[in-house]
Simulated assay, not measured.
Amino acid sequence: MDKKLGFGFMRLPLLDNNDQTAFDTKTINKMVDAFLARGFTYFDTAYTYHDFKSEVAIREALVKRHNRDVFTLATKLPPRILQAVADQERIFNEQLEKCGVEYFDYYLIHNIGVSSYQQALKYDTFGFAMDKKQAGRIKNVGMSFHDTPELLDEVLTAHPELDFVQLQINYIDWENPGIQSKICYEVARKHNIPIIVMEPCKGGNLARAPEEAEELMKAYHPAASIPSWAIRFAASQEGVLMVLSGMSTLEQVLDNTSYMADFKPLNDTEYKIVNAVTEIINANTAVACTTCRYCVAGCPKNIAIPDYFALYNSAKLATCDNISSQFVYYMNLTANHGKASECIECKKCETACPQHLKITEHLKDVAKTFDAAPALPAKPK
């Protein structure tokens, strides 16, 4: 794998944004074809993505339409949802069927944190994955990780058999005390384990930036896209094997592959610009949500948490007090979802959140902004 860009099947284009399984098949096919045509081979999915249908999407767009030897496929087993040892065999066989393959090139124990690690230990998920590797159904066993450097060190020390680790690395989280990307990266380097990067653009948040930040980047690289800075930052770190991008449009595929085809690490001047951009973004971001949507599934009030946070961030970034457009979107969402003010603070969402956000507190802020906002004026007759 010479090229460091991977295609994440986590944020696929949809025909209906209210239905995570309403795939825009024609666009996805074009995206996959363009990615492969430009010499990139790594595809990443997971059992739970897109309401448990991402693996089906990858079968239809990739596996059925291209020879098995021209792509590398990764998927993930989520310990968090296990209720019995037998669930692992059932899920694994289901994944093989959904993806339409006989083996996985990369197989991850998904979203390891304090609680999910205990689940993985309870059901010997690491042993299960290694058994499948021995049987030839998996080529490389790893884990995706969202927790503290201390826990990462503990897990990697206990499981030296892992072939790789997948970490959230991006310039906004590099020094973030909640995510601690840099320290987690340093722990992985200490264990001399290859790193695959997820969330290099932090769920698309780094694909756009405040005007002041964009001006800094464009002044140095007028032709370079804003997300290229984020992906190149992640790929520039020593020991990084692959950088995943959850691409949603053909334009994103063409842009990402254009600069990653002949990847050049950031230079000293670019690092200084990234540091300045980080300060600007931190001063302008209200909620650091990546829209992974892990929080949504268990919500008893069916609150559209990531969608509300995106609208809230947009409202806070608005250059004036007029939030009418965000309010319209919010009201449209509440037609089929609970309002932010209906949160009962069960905190299931916070347990599932890889970013360790205080979601219930943020929802109170959303409620103050939108639920307390005056109704839009009626259209004149």
Results as ranks from 00 to 15, higher is better:
Lys381Arg: 12
Asp51Ser: 14
Cys99His: 10
Asp153Cys: 05
Val277Glu: 06
Phe104Asn: 08
Asp33His: 02
Ile195His: 00
Tyr329Leu: 10
Pro306Glu: 09
Thr45Tyr: 00
Pro160Val: 05
Met10Leu: 11
Leu73Asn: 07
Glu186Gly: 07
Gly239Ser: 08
Ala315Glu: 15
Pro79Trp: 04
Val85Gly: 01
Ile81Asp: 10
Leu167Met: 04
Ala188Val: 11
His110Gln: 12
Leu36Phe: 08
Cys299Trp: 11
His50Cys: 14
Val101Ala: 06
Val287Ser: 02
Met1Asn: 12
Asp365Met: 05
Ile138Glu: 06
Gln355Leu: 05
Tyr47Lys: 15
His146Gly: 02
Phe263Ala: 01
Asp147Arg: 00
Thr48Gly: 01
Glu55Asp: 10
Leu73Cys: 03
Leu156Tyr: 08
Ser115Ile: 12
Tyr330Leu: 04
Cys353Lys: 06
Leu333Trp: 13
Cys289Ala: 13
Gly338His: 03
Tyr42Glu: 06
Arg137Pro: 00
Glu89Cys: 03
Pro265Arg: 15
Gln83Tyr: 09
His362Lys: 13
Pro78Cys: 12
His221Gly: 04
Glu361Arg: 13
Ala230Tyr: 04
Ala340Met: 13
Glu361Pro: 04
Asp33Arg: 03
Phe370Cys: 04
Ile28Cys: 10
Val70Ser: 09
Thr148Phe: 09
Ala310Thr: 13
Lys3Tyr: 02
Met31Leu: 09
Asp16Ser: 01
Glu94Lys: 10
Asn205Pro: 01
Asp33Ala: 10
Ser324Trp: 09
Pro194Asn: 12
Glu214Thr: 08
Glu270Arg: 07
Tyr107Gln: 04
Ile91Gly: 03
Ala315Leu: 07
Gly136His: 04
Lys339Gln: 14
Pro300Asp: 09
Ser236Val: 14
Ile273Phe: 05
Asn282Gln: 15
Asn140Ile: 01
Lys202Ser: 03
Val240Gly: 05
Ser245Ile: 03
